[in-house]
């Protein structure tokens, strides 16, 4: 049983995907077509991209609830800036502004010692209010046609968002697993006081983590805005939950220290498959919301049972 649980921890998400795949293949004749699969993956990239940032945050022992607000902020700035300063500068500037939000999050968390949840929850409200203020409560259409390429274009038959996700995956994978900085994130999430004693600059590492989360959220904002061709201050309601679900379902430990980026990719695809299945049945958006919430609670439930079992095994003297 212990062995099974260890195995489940590693490949549980694959099992889920295989089951969902078999189910969908039987239910829908269209499922096994390239277009459908690419479409499902593209839908999945939204959550996955921000999931990369969230993996870092949770690995460092923190949390970020402000990602959906940052998506909206990016969207508003893009719609305002593109007509004035051109597409590339507008994108860069919008991303930089979002990163500054992350910097503020990190600063409040490390320097004022405020709980990350409360900080980012408050920041979400502030940013949402600010986005609405800047946009004067309106949605702002973008008329520069070229901008749409980012979100809807294709390269070698594969939609651009998937390429963006792949590039970010490689970058974040290298960052987390191959650079000293990434390993210091794990170190801090794993044992903060030991990391401090070992001479790591905890403040810097943490602030950068929140900057990176906001960075991924603003990338997501760029993609969404380019697809919608409109700046929407409240662009992604409920998106934070999706991101956190993907992160946790992907095997990143809530207690910090262990991040799983590949798991996040597959968890994102799995959720996207659920959405696809729900669309087949023809249910509304609310069921999607419900399903994400339930998947999260289910994942937590299984994790809770697993921990209880392992604790009981330890008392019985079974080597865990």
């Amino acid at each position: 049983m212990v062995k099974f649980l260890k195995l489940y921890e590693k490949i549980g998400i694959f099992i889920l995907i295989v089951f969902a795949g078999i189910f969908l293949a039987i239910a829908s004749p269209n499922f096994l077509k390239t277009d459908t699969i690419l479409n499902i993956i593209t839908q999945g990239t939204y959550g996955v991209i921000v999931g990369f940032g969230m993996v870092l945050a949770i690995t460092s022992g923190g949390f970020d609830l402000s990602v959906d607000a940052v998506v909206g902020l990016t969207s508003v700035f893009l719609s305002l800036l593109i007509p004035n300063i051109g597409i590339p500068s507008a994108i860069i500037l919008s991303i930089l502004i979002s990163c500054f939000v992350g910097f503020l999050n990190g600063l409040i968390i490390t320097k004022f010692g405020v709980n990350p949840l409360i900080t980012t929850l408050s920041m979400a409200t502030i940013i949402r209010g600010a986005s609405l203020l800047i946009a004067k409560g309106r949605q702002i259409p973008i008329s520069v046609e070229k901008f749409t390429v980012i979100g809807t274009g294709k390269l070698m038959g594969v939609p651009n968002p998937i390429w963006i996700m792949l590039v970010l995956f490689i970058l974040f994978f290298l960052l987390l697993n191959q650079t000293p900085y990434g390993r210091h994130i794990c170190a801090i999430g794993s044992n903060e006081s030991a990391a401090r004693v070992s001479g790591l600059n905890v403040t810097f590492v943490k602030i950068m983590v929140y900057v990176l989360v906001s960075f991924t959220a603003s990338i997501n904002g760029v993609i969404r805005t380019s697809q919608a061709m409109i700046g929407i201050p409240s662009m992604a309601p409920g998106f934070t939950l999706l991101v956190i679900t993907i992160t946790i379902l992907g095997g990143t430990s809530l207690s910090g220290g262990k991040g799983n980026l590949i798991g996040a990719v597959f968890a994102g695809i799995f959720i996207s498959m659920i959405y696809y299945g729900l669309n087949l049945i023809g249910v509304q958006y609310f069921y999607q919301l419900l399903s994400v919430g339930l998947v999260l609670l289910f994942a937590l439930f299984v994790d809770g049972l697993r921990k209880r079992y392992l604790e009981a095994a330890k008392i019985k003297g079974i080597k865990v």
Binding site: F63, L65, L117, G238, L241, I244, T245, I248, L254, L289, L290, V292, G293, L294, L296, L297, L300, F301, D303, G304, L305, K307, R308
Partner: peptide, 16 residues
């Protein structure tokens, strides 16, 4: 009983 941190439990419940 499942020892899941309150914020994550209630975050899920929020949407459910």
């Amino acid at each position: 009983k499942l020892r899941i941190p309150a914020f994550i439990t209630t975050l899920g419940m929020l949407f459910v």
